[in-house]
Design a protein around this nucleic acid. Sequence first.
DNA 1: CAAGATTTTGACCAAATGGTCGAATGTTGG
DNA 2: CCAACATTCGACCATTTGGTCAAAATCTTG
Lengths: 207, 207
Amino acid sequence: MNKPSRIQRENRAAIASAAVREFSARGYHGATIDAIADKAGMSKPNLLYYFPSKEAIYRTVLEQIVEEWLSPLLSLDPDGDPVEELRRYISLKMKMSADRPEASRLFASEILAGAPILRDFLETRLKTLVDDKSAILRSWIADEKLAPIDPVHLIFMIWATTQHYADFEAQIDAVTGGASQQQGFQDQAAQAVLSILLNGIKPRPNA
Amino acid sequence: MNKPSRIQRENRAAIASAAVREFSARGYHGATIDAIADKAGMSKPNLLYYFPSKEAIYRTVLEQIVEEWLSPLLSLDPDGDPVEELRRYISLKMKMSADRPEASRLFASEILAGAPILRDFLETRLKTLVDDKSAILRSWIADEKLAPIDPVHLIFMIWATTQHYADFEAQIDAVTGGASQQQGFQDQAAQAVLSILLNGIKPRPNA
DNA sequence: CAAGATTTTGACCAAATGGTCGAATGTTGG
DNA sequence: CCAACATTCGACCATTTGGTCAAAATCTTG
């Protein structure tokens, strides 16, 4: 298994990109190797020359997505200003939703189905990360820099609200008459989410 | 098309219940008529005696779910106290997530896939309903009983946070070590969501 | 440029699956 | 009790689809 050739790099990348689009649009079972190969501009046996099976493609793209997903939370800085750190984190997640909606939907689809492939990752690396960052949030609360809110639920709420704009895009488009593609809409959404969440967690004097 | 017999009522109900479980667990394409028939306790041809096709089953259960989904928002009362009305609405949605997680996941799965079946419903009935309720929220904001937040985004945030507990149950279970089944967890979740959202939208004196 | 390695593909296979059909079985009203 | 009707199901079919294989085409390199 030496260094991959240019052709290998290009084709693997084309397949991964096509697979994310296809899996996110049709789900694991709805996606077909033929369709992915078509989108990647090659024949099915050719695609299977690069990946041994449909599930292998799925695993590969899921792993790539999961790594991206982790990074914003990783960078939550215990020494920063709590509200500013959370503002930055939420903004980053909103941007990811806007920039890579298919990736978000593929991840969502895997979790919806009960996380058959990602369960182990969720129970180990993600759990550890959430435990770590919860401790930071708890210390901020102890210092009365945040309202006393269960940190785990705060993290869930941030995930829920930010990813909603990618995962439920079809619903949002329908309800808003298709506004969600425009730049203005994204800024509006980010502003509303930031406003509610940040106001919701700022320490309240009389409580 | 006379009144259905007892057998018809029972079998149709059994099929619908089995279909919700099967479709929500495996997605539209992953679900098989055989599996639904098994769960409903009958043979595949027998099931197809009650529904003409897989898609017909899917449409039927989706429609039932969508009707349930609408009702809590319908009851938002323009003459009630804004914060109390929203507290009631959010609590209702949290309870639906806890009580019928499969239904929530089936709905989510349809939207994730681009709402091929529900698009029309979303663009007509749901859009109208959201427009109506947005007007109520706007009037509350005008009366300074709520912070000035785009009503549509507030509604999206409520949907996102409440449905997250059903749709991403696998992730929540993994991260919390399986706590989400317990009653205490549900109460905790509801409290956190209510606290952040309600504090997030209460009018702020100096803004 | 030739030989070996890499990449590509048409043809094919086996399993899964949505759906049909006719015969058998059960139910019900007169 | 029986005739008409409703319900159930084993056997079957056609299509889709994940995956294989051997041969052809292309690329790389000494």
